[in-house]
Design a protein around this nucleic acid. Structure first.
Lengths: 240, 240
DNA sequence: CATTGGTGTTGATCTGGGTCAATGCGGCCA
DNA sequence: TGGCCGCATTGACCCAGATCAACACCAATG
């Protein structure tokens, strides 16, 4: 296991950037704002690169900032004292990070691949929400979507078999990445991350991939590429 | 298993009620509003009783209304086609029900014991939120809290042992009901509901209760009462 | 080009919790 | 007062997935 002192550190860049030209804005909470408001937003935000394997925020640390993912993939996870880990989700550009009701972050957000995020202090973001209720509305909608996904994941973790879990995961990923059957789905995360997301071990994930390959549901390209070759049967294997 | 056609039906009462006098308001989203605004709210809401075992909303049904729990306990759950069930949470007075981004409810809300709820149509509630952003703020805060609880539950379902799950559940319940060690915690739900919440079977829940009783962590009063007799060891058993 | 370390796969074995089945135990109604 | 009926508990056995161990496959490094 990688401990925090082994991980690369986030590089913090200067705030000289422009929200108007931001390509993820339509996807993000900031999509709620008009041109004049974006000017205000630009002044209170700053972008930063995130090296692969580095943590944007860490569970238990004081929650001072919130972020919008600009680029890359992040994984969110919680740890138990003995090292058991549960990945609670993967974030893609446009997603919001850092919601913490209380003083501290309740999960760690670690970059799976190199990326970037847009940072606000919680205070400034709060002020922006008070000033522009549309921002709060967008955030509510984002958080609600996340809650729905979390409930779906509880069903997966509480009641699905290993095969159903992996099938559900792959279908969800394909849908989220707008891939249809036949197209390649990229899995930027490693087997350990998938296992910790699905509540399984790496061995079981690996065996289940092999079983699905043999059953003809899918083929794997290299260790990060999957092609769904029989969508119906994969759907059936997902069980719901 | 109880199918919907066997269940009692919700009784719908008239809208003649007053938000000002509402005892759960301080806990609920409506706590955001002032006296004049409550007058408006009274006009678009109506209260209804919920018989034990009846469903306030059902997974897959068109999502027309949202609710605040006034009284009683509800369980939220999702079903798989073959009947496997995951309880995603229990609601107490002040909690909000019915968030559904999309056309349909994504879970069923069923009364564990007889209770009551305050109903709004989604449209009217939306209009109220646009008019009074503070309402949206309170809802965001409620939903964020629920999301945090859902992430905690993912850790439980994905990574904890049966003993850890039950210990975590009991500690959470005691905290939520403001009970300290030595006081009785009431479990209005049956073993099947607990099992479906913790991703276990009734047999395992029962065996784990027995093991904890024998180990001296707790004693059971009747089948719905639990007294935590050794808080430290129960905390230790929760593992985190 | 050999070496090493990180990641994935496969095999053998073990076990926590599931499954199946019997029994206990009130509460309720006739 | 006895006979259900709906839970909860307990016991015996089983199995999906965990654990432990070996090995394969690069990519990076000297």
């Amino acid at each position: 296991m990688i401990r925090s002192e082994d991980r690369p550190v986030c590089h913090r860049s200067s705030p000289g950037h422009h929200c108007e030209g931001c390509s993820v804005r339509p996807l993000a909470v900031c999509g709620a704002l008009g041109p004049g408001e974006l000017e205000r937003l630009s002044r209170v935000s700053s972008s930063q690169r995130i090296a692969a394997g580095s943590c944007l925020i860490e569970e238990g640390e004081p929650a001072e900032c919130v972020f919008t993912v600009l680029e890359g993939i992040l994984k969110l996870y919680k740890l138990m004292p003995d090292g058991r880990r549960q990945v609670t989700g993967f974030l893609i550009p446009g997603d919001f990070v850092g919601l913490a009701f209380g003083e501290s972050y309740i999960y760690t957000a670690e970059a799976v691949v190199e990326g970037a995020a847009c940072r606000f202090t919680r205070n400034q973001f709060h002020r922006m929400m008070e000033e522009f209720p549309a921002l709060e509305g967008r955030l509510l909608s984002k958080v609600s979507t996340e809650l729905a996904a979390a409930q779906e994941q509880m069903l997966l973790l509480g009641r699905k078999t290993a095969r159903e879990r992996l099938a559900t995961f792959l279908l969800g990923l394909a849908r989220r990445m707008n891939r249809s059957a036949g197209e390649q789905v990229r899995l930027p995360m490693g087997r350990a991350d998938i296992a910790d997301f699905l509540g399984l071990t790496v061995e079981t994930v690996s065996r289940t991939f092999t079983a699905m390959r043999k059953a003809g549901y899918l083929s794997t390209v290299d260790k990060h590429g999957v092609v769904i070759t029989d969508l119906d049967r994969l759907r059936e294997a997902a069980g719901d």
